[in-house]
Design a protein around this nucleic acid. Structure first.
Length: 282
DNA sequence: GCGCAGGTAGAGT
DNA sequence: ACTCTACCTGCG
């Protein structure tokens, strides 16, 4: 049965997580309330404004305390101390310090592998608003309809099998454009058992990345996003146009990945969120 | 109208 | 190996 779960959490801000663009199924529902659909579950999150320090967050889900403990706690990576990552930043690197301070509430989510593969296939050469709409279209057309505790309809993410039945350009009706064949062909590869997703979860970063690159439409950037946001391989450091520009502007001699070995991806998110928030988009 | 948005595959040097 | 370009679609 549904119930509220309230927790004090450091380095957590749902708005920052939502705007950091890892999850395309998270949205602001109203003033201080966010919703997210993940692995078929629906959750609402809000800050406890009455609390003095701003560390208290409330989570509302169908399965209450048990679902929160068994699923959402890990999903939001709540057991990890992100202040420890930020503390590693070189004191003289004012750019990264500012970026990390600005996005200190970001968490690297642990999202579903299949959802991330499809989501980031769709993300290429595309903007956030349209990515969200594309994914929503695909879910509405090929996912499963469910009703949340507010009585509102939401849709689960379609299975590989559901998408594997389609013709290669059939997802163009969901506005995927040329990405349609990437998604359908990848779905066929997964549904046929040619590539086992469970196996990828157990691989090292290098192995997983290599395996993901075999999917039609998955290149280095998309593979790294999947490694970071689904497999929680924090060493993955996706380089997109924003990151590429930021790095050449602020790190002409290269970003010091060595210093942040094993959690480079966390730093990438601070930089991305900072750049993205200051580029007039959102 | 035209360039671009969290790239990638495929063809051509 | 490296460089170049087509690719859907919608929004400024």
């Amino acid at each position: 049965m549904k119930s509220w779960v309230t927790r004090k959490i450091d380095n957590f801000d749902i708005r920052q997580i939502c705007e950091s663009g890892q999850c395309f199924r998270m949205r602001q529902k109203d003033e201080n309330r966010y919703s997210v659909i993940a692995s078929g579950c629906y959750l609402e999150i809000m800050r406890e404004e009455k609390s003095e320090n701003k560390r208290e967050w409330s989570f509302l889900c169908e399965g209450g305390e048990e679902e929160f403990e068994s699923f959402w706690k890990e999903y939001f990576d709540l057991e990890t101390n992100y202040a420890a990552y930020i503390a590693q930043i070189h004191p003289k690197d004012t750019y990264l310090r500012d970026a990390a301070e600005f996005g200190a509430g970001i968490r690297i989510l642990k999202q579903d592998l299949w959802e991330m593969i499809v989501s980031f296939l769709i993300s290429q050469q595309n903007n956030i608003v349209r990515i969200r709409r594309c994914i929503q279209n695909v879910c509405e057309k090929y996912g499963e309809a469910r009703t949340n505790f507010c009585g509102e309809l939401y849709y689960t993410f379609p299975t590989p099998e559901a998408l594997a039945e389609l013709e290669e350009d059939e997802l163009k009706v969901c506005n995927l454009g040329y990405r349609s064949k990437y998604v359908v062909r990848t779905a066929k590869s997964v549904a046929s058992g040619e590539t086992e997703l469970d196996r990828i979860y157990k691989m090292s970063y290098r192995e997983a990345r290599e395996e993901l690159l075999k999917f039609y439409g998955v290149g280095g950037k998309v593979a790294d996003c999947i490694c970071l946001f689904a497999l929680h391989q924090l060493q993955a450091f996706p380089v997109d146009t924003h990151i590429s520009q930021a790095l050449s502007a602020h790190y002409p001699r290269g970003f010091p990945k060595r210093r942040y070995k094993g959690f480079e991806g966390v730093m990438q998110q601070y930089i991305f969120y900072w750049e993205f928030s200051h580029s007039g988009q959102s």
